[in-house]
Design a binder for these strands. Structure first.
Lengths: 340, 340
DNA sequence: CTGTTAGCGCCTTCAG
DNA sequence: CTGAAGGCGCTAACAG
C-alpha cells in the first residue's frame, strides 16, 4: 500500500550478480568484504536510491537504535535544553529519540516506562517525577538489563548511572554570595526532601552558614513543591512575618519570580542585588529582575553528558559500572540596571 | 543477546492449542474471532507476560505507528507546548512521536526530513524554519504520499493540510486595542515576509489602521528577524528617533522584552498599558511587564489540532483533502499592577 | 470462526 | 572472500 520505495538489498544484489548476504555485509562495512565489492555495492545502492529498512534490521538484530527519554515536562527550559543536548548527540551517533513527559506524576511516569519499553528502546534517560513516592516501575528496565541513566533528579534506591549538577556547591556558593553582601537572616526554600537535588542544595547552604558562624533559624527553612501558587505562600510567610529575612534563597525560578512579584504588588522593597538567589535556567530570568543573582545549570550539558554515558553503556564500552558524574554549577551575578 | 522476554504469539498459541493467526487476530480484536477465544488468548497473554513485538508487526505492515515532528526549536515555549499537545493525542491513539529541531536553518531542516524519512514515519507535522528560502526537501514526503501537516509557520507553495492561528485577526485586534487607547503613531515590527504569519499580522494591522483612518507611516513598519539582538536595534531606531511612536506592536515576546529593557535602561518612559503588544506565549511574560497586553496563541491547541488532522489523513478518514484550519487568537489585556 | 502458508527485508550462521 | 539457507515475530491472504 505504501511501498513506493521498494529497493531492497536483493535488488542491488541482482543488479551486480552477487548474493544478498554480500550486499548486506558490504553495506555494513564488514571486514571480510573486498574494498572493490564494497565500492560497487555502495555505488549501486546510491544509483538505485536504496534506503535501508531499519524495521527489518531492527527485527533481526532486536535493537532499535532508539533511546527513550522521560522528563517531567518539556516546557521547562532546563528540560527542553536537556532534550536538545540529548537529541544532538544521539542523532550524531545514529540513534533516534523518543520523548515522554511524566507531568511530575508517578502514574504518568509509569505509563512512560511502559510506552518506552513497548517501543523496545535500547536505553533510557530519565529525570524523575516530583510527586512520586515509589520508583519501582523503573525495574521494568533494570530487571531486563536495559541501560538506564538518570539526570538531575535522581533517586538513590535505584542503582544506575547518574548525571547530576553540583547542587551542594550550588547551595554553598549561593549562601556565601548572600553572606558576602552582608545578609544574616537568610531564608532557604527547598523542594521535596526525597530528592537529592534539594537535600544537597540545602546541605551546601547550611554548610556555608556554619562556616561563617551564622545562626540557622529553623523557621527560615521552608519545604515547598516549588509551584507558582506555593511560591506565593512562601512569599507571604516570609515577607509578612514580624521579622522578615534579609535574603531569600528561592528553590527555583518560579518561586523566585512569585516572591518578586508579590513583593512588588505589596510595595515591599527587596534590594535585588541581595534578595533572591535561585536555581535558574529560564532564558528570561534576566529580564524579570535584571539584577537577580542566579545559580545556573546547563540543561544542554547535562543532557549531552547523560547521552554520552548511556551510549557508552549500550555499546558496552564501559562494563556497566554505575558511574555518577557531577557537573559544575555557576553563580551568575548580574549587574543592577541602576548601576549602568 | 537481549531477548529476555521471549514470549511470542506462538507461545500463547501452543499453550492454548490454537494457531498463531488466531492469537494474532484475537489480540487485534478482529471481529471474526469469538469472544470466548479472545478472552482465553488475552488471559493467557497476561499470564505469560506477553509483550507484543512492534518491530515485527511494523515490518509486516510497513507502518510504524510513529509520527515525526519538525520544529525550529523545542526550547521556545510555543513549540514545546505544541509538542505537548501533539504527544498527548498521538500517544492516546497509539502513536509514537519523533521530534527533530531545525534550529531555523534550512540545512538542518533538510536533515530532519531525511532522518524522519529513514525512520519511516507514518506522517509528519512541521513548522518551517525561518531562515529557509527553499522548501523542496519536503517533497521527500509529498512525492511519496507521506502525509504532511504544517502548523503555525506554513508555506503556500507546498500543498498540504495546515493549521494556523488567525494572525490577520491578531494583527487587527492588537491595532484596534492600541487605537482605543488613543495611540496614533503605532509602530509595527514584523518578521520575515516570506512567511504567512508575518504577512497576515501586518495586513490585519494595516486594515485596522485604515478602518480608523489613521495615517500609516512607512518608517514605523520594520522588518526584523525578531531576535534579541535585532530587538535592540528596533528599540534604538524607534525610541531614539526625533518623533518616536506612541505605541509599538512588537513581533514577538523577545522583541517586546528587548524594547522594554532598552527603554528601562535608558530611562525612557513607555506607559505599559499602551506601549507594546506582541504575539506572546512565554509563561513569564506577565512577570516581565505585568501590564503588557499580549496577543496569544495556544501552542497546545495548535499541536493537538495538527495531530488530529494528521491522524485522520493517516487513517484515511478524510480523503486527503487539503484542509486549512484557522484557530482563534486572544487578546490578553492585563491589569496594570499600579491599579491594584 | 479458525488454520495453513507465505512472506515483510535483513542478518547470520554455516559451508564453501 | 562469498553464497545458501533459515529465521527474527507477526500478519494477510487464502482456504476451509
Amino acid at each position: 500500500m505504501k511501498n513506493e520505495n521498494n529497493v531492497t538489498i536483493h535488488d542491488i544484489a541482482k543488479a551486480l550478480n552477487i548474493s544478498g548476504s554480500t550486499v548486506s555485509r558490504a553495506l555494513n562495512n564488514n571486514a571480510r568484504i573486498s574494498e572493490k565489492t564494497k565500492k560497487a555495492v555502495k555505488d549501486m545502492a546510491k544509483q538505485l536510491g536504496y534506503q535501508p529498512n531499519a524495521l527489518a534490521s531492527n527485527l533481526r538484530t532486536s535493537c532499535t537504535n532508539t533511546i527513550g527519554v522521560i522528563i517531567p515536562r518539556i516546557s521547562r527550559y532546563f528540560f527542553s535544553s536537556a532534550i536538545t543536548g540529548i537529541e544532538e548527540l544521539a542523532r550524531e551517533k545514529g540513534f533516534n529519540v523518543i520523548i515522554c513527559q511524566s507531568n511530575d506524576l508517578e502514574e504518568r511516569e509509569s505509563d512512560c516506562v511502559q510506552t518506552l519499553f513497548a517501543s523496545r528502546v535500547d536505553g533510557v534517560i530519565s529525570s524523575v517525577a516530583l510527586k512520586a513516592e515509589n520508583y519501582d516501575h523503573y525495574k521494568t528496565f533494570t530487571s531486563r538489563n536495559i541501560p538506564l541513566v538518570f539526570f538531575d533528579r535522581v533517586v538513590d534506591e535505584l542503582e544506575t548511572s547518574k548525571v547530576v549538577v553540583d547542587d551542594f556547591k550550588g547551595g554553598f556558593i549561593a549562601a556565601e554570595h548572600l553572606i558576602s553582601k552582608g545578609c544574616k537572616r537568610i531564608a532557604h526554600i527547598s523542594g521535596p526532601q526525597h530528592l537529592n537535588i534539594y537535600i544537597n542544595r540545602l546541605q551546601g547552604f547550611l554548610k556555608a552558614m556554619r562556616k561563617h558562624h551564622i545562626d540557622i533559624n529553623e523557621e527560615l527553612i521552608i519545604e515547598s513543591p516549588l509551584t507558582r501558587e506555593d511560591g506565593l505562600r512562601c512569599a507571604k510567610t516570609l515577607l509578612e512575618s514580624d521579622n522578615p529575612p534579609d535574603a531569600i534563597f528561592a528553590g527555583n525560578d518560579t518561586t523566585a519570580l512569585s516572591i518578586i512579584l508579590y513583593a512588588k504588588e505589596k510595595g515591599i522593597k527587596i534590594p535585588e542585588e541581595v534578595a533572591v538567589v535561585g536555581f535558574s535556567n529560564e532564558p528570561f530570568s534576566e529580564f524579570l529582575s535584571p539584577s537577580l543573582t542566579t545559580v545556573e545549570q546547563s540543561g544542554f550539558d547535562v543532557g549531552t553528558k547523560a547521552t554520552e554515558l548511556l551510549l557508552d553503556i549500550i555499546q558496552n564500552k564501559t562494563g556497566n559500572k554505575q558511574e555518577t558524574i557531577v557537573l559544575p554549577v555557576n553563580l551568575i551575578e548580574r549587574e543592577s540596571s541602576d548601576k549602568k
